[in-house]
Computed example of a mutant assay.
Amino acid sequence: MANYTAADIKALRERTGAGMMDVKKALDEANGDADKAMELIRIKGLKGATKREGRSTAEGLVAAAVENGVGVMVEVNCETDFVAKAAPFIDFSNKVLAVALTSGAADVESLLAADVDGKPLSELVIEAGALLGEKVAIRRIARIEGATVDAYLHKTSKDLPAQVGVLFAVDGAGEGAGVVAHDVAVHIAAMSPTFVSRDEISPETVENERRIATETAQAEGKPEAAMSKIVEGRLTGFFKEIVLVDQAFAKDAKKSVGTVLDEAGVKAVAFARFRVGA
């Protein structure tokens, strides 16, 4: 007769994120000892690390934090949403974020090489995969600096950790700057701009968009006399889709994001937006 209960299985699954059958087998082998079973699950996971290398990691979470005017955000991936919401995976992701904050890493390679208690973070990634029984990966990292930086995390499902994360920096400080930075960060999460301003778009991209707008207008038989105005209008529409300061503000569509920032007396410095798997 098994020396454990259904509640023991549930508790160990929550601790490890492992599958039910793996948990039951470990508890059987450990004669119901949860700590021993957890150790067995980890050992089994390390042995299977090579087999997991080619697996897809489309689930996971985004974690972000701001310290001393520096915002850091990471996306940590796993294979299933079950593991994504498991406490061990969330704890590991928070550890990754902490290392990202203290190490100063600006890219994944540097982050994985960062020292954690005498060994590189890359080894902890392997150990996390062993514990969870799935491939775990750090997909990307962003660092943004500014007088005020806001970190906003958004849950697309109440049952999962944050799937969308935003860092947004402005050049001003104070309560007003903090409020508008947060509001715009929420806007970025929803509207997904690509650039802060038009200046960041390459001239080649703008000219290509102008050419497409011109050829489209000609194909529609638009009058030549109005062609220039039509093309520039469509180009403006293109900018409003991808440029943050040109977008209609999510909280008040009568104003652009640029206008909202101007009214607060600040300018946008930079932003980063992650969505798990995108």
Rank of each mutant, 00 (worst) to 15 (best):
N3P: 02
T5E: 12
T5R: 11
A11D: 08
R13D: 01
T16R: 03
T16Q: 06
L27C: 00
D28Y: 00
D28H: 00
D33S: 13
D33F: 00
G45S: 15
T50L: 11
R52I: 15
G54P: 14
G54W: 01
G54L: 04
S56N: 04
S56P: 00
E59T: 15
E59P: 00
G60N: 13
L61D: 01
V62G: 04
A65I: 08
A65H: 11
E67A: 05
G69L: 06
V72W: 02
V72L: 09
M73V: 13
E75L: 03
C78N: 08
E79H: 10
F82C: 08
V83K: 05
K85W: 12
P88T: 13
F89R: 03
I90S: 04
V96N: 03
L97F: 05
A100R: 01
L101R: 10
S103K: 07
G104Y: 02
A106H: 09
E109I: 07
S110G: 14
D115T: 15
D117M: 08
G118D: 06
L121T: 03
R140N: 12
R140L: 04
I141V: 15
R143E: 12
I144V: 06
E145W: 05
Y152F: 15
L153S: 11
H154W: 02
K155H: 09
Q163T: 13
G165W: 00
L167K: 03
L167G: 01
L167N: 02
A169P: 00
G176R: 07
A177L: 10
D183C: 01
V186F: 07
S192R: 13
R198H: 06
E200K: 03
E200D: 02
S202T: 02
E204L: 02
E204H: 05
I212Y: 02
A213M: 03
T214E: 07
E215Y: 08
A217W: 00
A219P: 12
P223C: 14
S228F: 08
V231N: 04
G233L: 05
R234V: 06
T236F: 05
F238G: 10
E241C: 12
L244W: 03
Q247W: 14
K254Q: 09
V257E: 03
G258M: 05
D262C: 06
V266F: 15
K267Y: 06
F271S: 05
F271E: 00
R273P: 10
